[in-house]
């Protein structure tokens, strides 16, 4: 019962929020506006994929947004200032975020440090490297190819950004792996009962390491989407995404205690945040209140998780 509710609850919240904003603003439900919501959500949405994997193993990655910013700076500086071809620059940028994922994973699995502390450390390290490498300057004059995913096409008069398609494809792929493959089920098992997973022969540290590395890859892809969306490499990007990604995952019904949740829930969670921000903006509500409401939503989501778990015992 609580399981079913856990999966449907976030979706109902999204529908309710959408209905509410539709009654408040005529513009909310237009195709163009929903397209804007998706564009605003696409970066944090992709980060949330990696964050979901980490949280499913009962970990957490606080460094996600700043690592993404590092990836964005690496790929834009290479392309704009060193004349590296766009595909290679993008690959190196994703490589940089993947290395950070590897670092997080190694510290968690080899030295057995708590993920919270590890990623709090790498958050600061990534931020500092980003600032130093970029001299705290925004990187501009990017080659056209860097922005390709920011391009659009039209579906029945509605503008769709390629980046949104990339995000949706990544969600579909991750959902498939988590649901339909042994590797995916092992992620759940490791988060749910690591001892049981180990005793059944699952290489628990390898699963956890893989999850942090894959998360690093998603941050790199998010970096590319962020560059494509803004047209620049911004060393101060990603700061709100650090917590927004965790917010999206939690709002989407994934338990911070690990082993429970779905990646599609995180998409719904990211959309809930996006819809609230967009809807409140349309209503003319100041952005401080948007942050306030996001905070309340997160606490509500975690409280629901906690209470439903208590009920299950």
């Amino acid at each position: 019962m609580s399981r079913a509710l856990g999966a449907v609850g976030p979706f109902l919240a999204l529908v309710a929020a959408s209905v509410f904003f539709a009654t408040r603003s005529d513009r909310f439900l237009t195709g163009d506006n929903l397209s804007i919501v998706l564009q605003q959500v696409m970066v944090v949405g992709v980060i949330a994929i990696g964050e979901t994997l980490v949280i499913l193993t009962a970990g957490v990655d606080l460094s996600c947004g700043t690592v993404m910013a590092l990836g964005a700076i690496v790929m834009t500086k290479l392309a704009a200032e060193l004349g590296v071809s766009a595909p290679l620059a993008i690959a190196v940028g994703i490589g940089a975020t993947t290395l950070f994922g590897l670092l997080n994973g190694l510290l968690v699995t080899r030295i057995n440090l708590p993920p919270f502390i590890v990623t709090l450390g790498t958050l600061n390290i990534a931020f500092a490297i980003t600032q130093l490498y970029s001299n705290a300057q925004t990187v501009t004059d990017l080659p056209e190819a860097m922005n390709a995913l920011g391009g659009t096409f039209h579906v029945g008069g509605t503008t769709v950004v390629y980046g949104v398609v990339v995000m949706l494809a990544l969600y579909a792929l991750t959902a498939f792996v988590l649901r339909e493959t042994a590797a995916g089920r092992h992620v759940y098992a490791v988060g749910n009962n690591p001892e049981a997973a180990r005793l059944t022969g699952i290489a628990t540290p390898r699963v956890i390491l893989a999850v942090y590395v894959l998360a690093g890859v998603t941050y790199g892809i998010a970096a590319l989407l962020s560059v494509a969306r803004t047209g620049v490499g911004d060393p101060n990007a990603g700061q709100t995404e650090n917590l927004d990604a965790i917010t999206a995952v939690v709002l989407g019904g994934t338990s911070l205690f690990g082993g429970r949740g779905t990646v599609l829930g995180s998409l719904v969670g990211a959309l809930i945040v996006g819809v609230f921000r967009n809807g409140l903006t349309l209503m003319g509500v100041s952005s401080v209140y948007q942050i306030l409401i996001t905070g309340i939503l997160v606490i509500l989501a975690v409280a629901t998780d906690q209470l439903s778990r208590r009920g299950a015992r």
Partner: peptide, 17 residues
């Protein structure tokens, strides 16, 4: 040594899917 959130079938075949 079972994973409570996983199904019975998943637990029976855990690590030997």
């Amino acid at each position: 040594a079972v994973a409570p959130a996983l199904s019975i079938a998943e637990n029976l075949f855990l690590g030997r899917e």
